[in-house]
Simulated scan of single mutants.
Amino acid sequence: MALEVKKLVGGYSQIPVLKQVSLTVKPGELVGLIGLNGAGKSTTLNHIIGLLRPFSGTITLNGLTLANNPAEYKQQIAYVPETPILYDELTLREHLELTMNAYGLDHQAAWQRARKLLKLFRLDNKLDWFPANFSKGMKQKVMICCAFMTNAKLLIVDEPFYGLDPLAVHDLLDLIEQKKKEGVAVLMSTHVLDTAQRYCDRFVLLANGQVRAHGTLAELRQQADRPDESLDEIYLGLARDDQDE
């Protein structure tokens, strides 16, 4: 098991946002984290990457925890946030070199991977550009290049499709498939449920800080007693049921 979250309770204040959240992501698997705004998706991801401390529960990544081995734990994770985070004073080249140093990568091998990614996302002629010169979509592509050039065992991708053009979305999904074949575990938060339905192996549906349902699409249909519905229809049905309770 790459990632295992057990009975996670946590949030940003003394009042918990997450209530007994449990999920797993296996090596070579893409798990979709699904939920309406405020369901607890970003809070869950922030706990996994170490920005928040759990009130209770455990988060284990390949046998490591943040409490016992924070450096090695974080070394295993690459993160693509919903909003790109870049340094205004660093060029694209310097962002890539900073990532290589942070992960202790061999620069020659890392640059080989980086150049392929830069060419794929049409950034190979922009190595000396600063973030001020990039559109939102280009900034997102920089974040993707930095994450996917690493040897991380867990990729966390938060709402990756906003700001990307259709070709870039297709290229990103191909990259995720390649990472899966390499045995990388991928956890993706997204509102684009038709795409999630086509590409994710399993799903974790959050509502009000709790896991409302989890499993493959077939298992979700069985749990929700909606045998012919899409992921979008299943989730909206469950979300409405919660609001009516």
Rank of each mutant, 00 (worst) to 15 (best):
L220H: 08
L205Q: 06
V169L: 01
A207E: 05
S135Y: 10
A110M: 14
W129G: 10
A147N: 01
L118R: 00
G183R: 05
L118M: 10
K119M: 05
H214V: 10
L187T: 03
R202E: 15
F121L: 13
R202I: 03
K139C: 08
D171A: 14
A114Y: 04
P131Y: 01
M138F: 05
N208R: 11
R202T: 12
K126A: 15
L220E: 00
R198W: 12
D201Y: 09
L154K: 08
V204A: 11
L105N: 15
A110W: 05
A147H: 15
Y199E: 00
Q140Y: 10
R221Y: 10
G209F: 14
K139Y: 03
Y162M: 12
K141V: 09
A185G: 14
V184A: 04
D128G: 15
F148H: 02
C146I: 01
I176L: 01
E182I: 06
T150W: 06
V157Q: 04
M143W: 06
N133M: 15
L167H: 09
L123N: 03
R113T: 09
A152F: 00
P160H: 11
V211R: 15
L206Y: 14
L117R: 14
K141P: 13
A110N: 13
V211I: 06
D171N: 11
V142R: 01
H191T: 00
A114F: 12
S189A: 08
P131T: 02
L173N: 14
